[in-house]
Design a protein around this nucleic acid. Structure first.
Lengths: 83, 83
DNA sequence: ACAGTTAATGATCCAGCCATCATATTCTGG
DNA sequence: CCAGAATATGATGGCTGGATCATTAACTGT
């Protein structure tokens, strides 16, 4: 699964996958994050350019965080593939 | 150096450090990213809640990307510390 | 201490996100 | 298929970020 984002479209996909892994509906996640299902949908489909604060609300609700790294650097996921 | 961000404040700090490591001024980075020095300053100091697209512009200019990972998962940086 | 570079910040305008109501559409299990 | 759940989407309005002009404050090396 791709956890890397370079665009809002990437980010939308990653967030959607993360939500599904945790078996949450958009409404569930929205409630946890204190935002609206409408907004979750917009962000997952990159229907509109979200605000950073909203993304952090979603990440916190998913118990995830951002790692800002140089491009093409090895990731934890790569290591799991190797070991 | 801390490359993890859970808040806009974290993100501002990470971006500022990344910029300094590459010896860029705010004006340099702004020019590369196609935005304004004013905006770079605002984001680094988290003076305002930035838009995600602006962040991606900055990350691209810094040749960096986002990894969205579960909290407290081991990072590439950790591995460098170990090996 | 000073000159020059870099960063912070004031003010205004416009575009567009999110909140908030809603309904329509798609998906899924049985 | 069909009912129910899940997701997408229409419309409006307030709020605020970024663009854009600018000046001031802070920092840096010498």
């Amino acid at each position: 699964m791709d956890r890397i984002a370079r665009t809002t479209k990437d980010l939308g996909h990653v967030l959607r996958e993360a939500r599904k892994i945790q078996n949450l509906t958009q409404a569930d996640l929205a409630a946890r994050a204190g935002i609206w299902q409408r907004t979750v949908s917009n962000i997952e489909t990159s229907a509109s350019g979200a605000k950073v604060d909203t993304i952090f609300d979603l990440l916190a609700a998913l118990d995830m965080e951002l790692h800002i790294v140089p491009r093409s650097k090895m990731t934890p996921g790569d290591l799991e593939d190797i070991f």
